[in-house]
Structures are given as structure tokens and as C-alpha cells.
Amino acid sequence: MTSERIAGRVGPEIKQLLDSRKSLFLSSITKDGAPYASYAPFAMGDECFYVLLSEIAVHAVNLQVNPVASVLVIEDEDSANELFARLRVNYQVEAHVLPVDSDEWQFGLDQLTGRHGELVRNLSQLGDFKMFRLEPISGRFVKGFGRAFSFSGKGLLGEQIEHMRDGHKKREQAEA
């Protein structure tokens, strides 16, 4: 199956998952090279994620020092059919701090306000909050056991998507 046909099939499912969640898990890297997991409310636009983070928060500091991060959007465990195979999409992203007086800042602010309400606009008025655009580089969409898709290139669906067919393998039995 071609990449376009796969994207046409799973693209709407990825969009539905992204639309159904209000926050994402964010894994950043500290200045010492240690991983740091957190979360943030998000919005989407221009094939990117937008997050408004206080520079007091560890993840905001990390993204400014090392702009490479990972984002996870995952089905709620309370509504999942199978806890071990929750619907999820993971992205490797590049983080960009947007200048406060830029059109990009305003676009991100409008997207976040539209999704999360006026509190976002109020927070944006505080001097310690920064707007980050998280640009996907690659990703993986998992629908369940043996139903995973990888994608590469920019955008929420990447430029190339393929079904991962190598799948799970049974553990070999030890010989007596």
C-alpha cells in the first residue's frame, strides 16, 4: 500500500485522537542531558503544536537549552479497550520560542485561546510565559497490537508514512 493510501486511511484517526485530547506529554532534555517528562495543554495549527509555558517551568528551560523533544498524545486509560495497546501518537519535535510581538505568537495565542479559553490570553500577559511552536520531524501512530505506523518529514502526518510490519515476535523456547 502506498504512503498516500496509508495516510488517507490513518490520517483521520490521528486527527481524531489529536482533536480529542487537550494536553500532551512532553519529554525534554535538561542541560545535563537527563530526560524530563511533563505535560502541557496544546493547540494545533500550521501542522505544528503550540504550547504556552512559563519560563519558571523546567520543561520551558529545557526547550530553550536543547530544542529537541518528544511529544506523546495518548488515549485516556479509562476509556481504552486494552491498557497495553492504547491508541497513541508520538512525535519527535523541534521547539522554537516565538517572539512576543510576532504574527506567529498571535497565531499560537489565537489557537490556544480558541481551544482552552480566555485563561490562555490572561497567562500570555505575564512576562514569564513563552510561546513555543513544536514542529514534528517524525512520529509513530499506534492503533493496537501489530498496528503501528511510522512517519517522517514535517507535519502532523509527516511527508512519508508506512505500516510497520516487523511486529512482535515470540520468545524462543529454551532447549532442555
Rank of each mutant, 00 (worst) to 15 (best):
R88Y: 02
K143R: 15
E55V: 06
E104S: 12
V58E: 15
Q160D: 12
G11R: 09
E172S: 12
L119S: 10
R21S: 13
S28F: 04
K22Y: 10
V65C: 08
R140A: 02
K130S: 14
Q111W: 00
C48N: 09
V100F: 07
G33C: 12
D110W: 00
F49T: 02
M164T: 03
I137T: 08
S102L: 05
D46Q: 03
G155D: 08
F132L: 03
Q160R: 14
A69R: 05
L109A: 04
S23D: 13
L72T: 10
F129S: 09
A40I: 10
S150K: 06
V61Y: 09
S150A: 13
S152A: 13
S79G: 07
A176I: 03
R88S: 06
V73R: 03
N122C: 06
L18Q: 08
V97L: 11
V58L: 13
L17A: 13
E94R: 14
L18A: 08
P35H: 10
G127D: 10
N62R: 10
D103R: 03
A80T: 14
G45Q: 02
G155S: 11
F25G: 10
Q111K: 15
Y50C: 00
Q106C: 01
A174Y: 05
K130R: 14
R21Q: 15
V120W: 06
F84V: 02
D19E: 14
L17H: 11
D78V: 07
R147K: 15
L98K: 00
T30F: 06
A95Q: 03
F141R: 03
A80G: 11
L72Q: 05
P35D: 10
E47G: 09
Q160M: 08
G144C: 09
D19W: 01
F84P: 00
Q92L: 04
S20M: 09
K170P: 07
H116F: 08
G11N: 11
S38W: 04
T113V: 14
S27R: 06
S70A: 15
I14M: 14
A85I: 06
N122R: 15
R88K: 14
V58D: 13
S54M: 05
R9D: 09
F141S: 06
G146F: 08
Q125L: 14
R165S: 12
S38C: 07
A80H: 11
L109C: 03
L109D: 01
A174D: 05
R9I: 02
Q106L: 07
L53H: 10
I14H: 07
E13N: 10
R5A: 15
L126S: 07
V58S: 14
Q106D: 06
G117P: 06
L18C: 08
A40H: 05
N66G: 05
D19R: 11
D128P: 03
I6Q: 09
G114D: 04
L53I: 11
A69W: 04
L52H: 09
E175N: 11
G117H: 07
L157W: 04
L83F: 11
L98R: 00
R86W: 05
F145S: 06
D46R: 00
E159W: 02
G155K: 09
F107D: 03
H168T: 08
D78K: 14
A43M: 09
P41T: 12
L109T: 01
E47L: 05
E118F: 07
A85M: 06
F107P: 01
F42T: 00
Q92A: 09
D76N: 15
